[in-house]
């Protein structure tokens, strides 16, 4: 069976996650070998995901960690002074 592009697009997310069945996976791979458009779509989507997981893309506010631990330190101090009164 020959897959068309639309069919490949429907499975692109699952294909990236490696969760399509073996047969479908093989068909998609065969399609990708010949289809520049789908290959480009797949690669661009994949690269977006790589960029998403890059810590520099979604940065924490400056000083976030310091403020968090300061607050936590106060809470810990409070709770250890009055262990039964949360």
């Amino acid at each position: 069976m020959k897959l068309d592009c639309k069919h490949v697009w429907e499975h692109i997310s699952e294909y990236i996650d490696g969760s399509v069945g073996a047969q479908l996976r093989e068909e998609i791979q065969r399609h990708l070998e010949h289809c520049e458009i789908c290959s480009a779509i797949l690669d661009s989507t994949r690269n977006i995901l790589i960029l998403t997981a890059d810590d520099r893309t979604f940065e924490l506010p400056v000083g976030f960690s310091e403020r968090l631990h300061e607050r936590l330190a106060k809470e810990i101090e409070k709770s250890t002074q009055r262990p039964n009164n949360e």
């Binding site: 639309k6 697009w9 692109i12 520049e36 458009i37 290959s39 480009a40 779509i41 690669d43 661009s44 989507t45 690269n47 977006i48 790589i50 960029l51 998403t52 890059d54 520099r56 893309t57 979604f58």
Partner: peptide
Amino acid sequence: TPAPLTDWREIPLEAVERKELRVALRQAV
């Protein structure tokens, strides 16, 4: 449906490293 990229093979690493792409991604998300 995804958008086709006709004049393109693969995003180079340098492109993914570009700051404006990260900004665009944050906005898109």
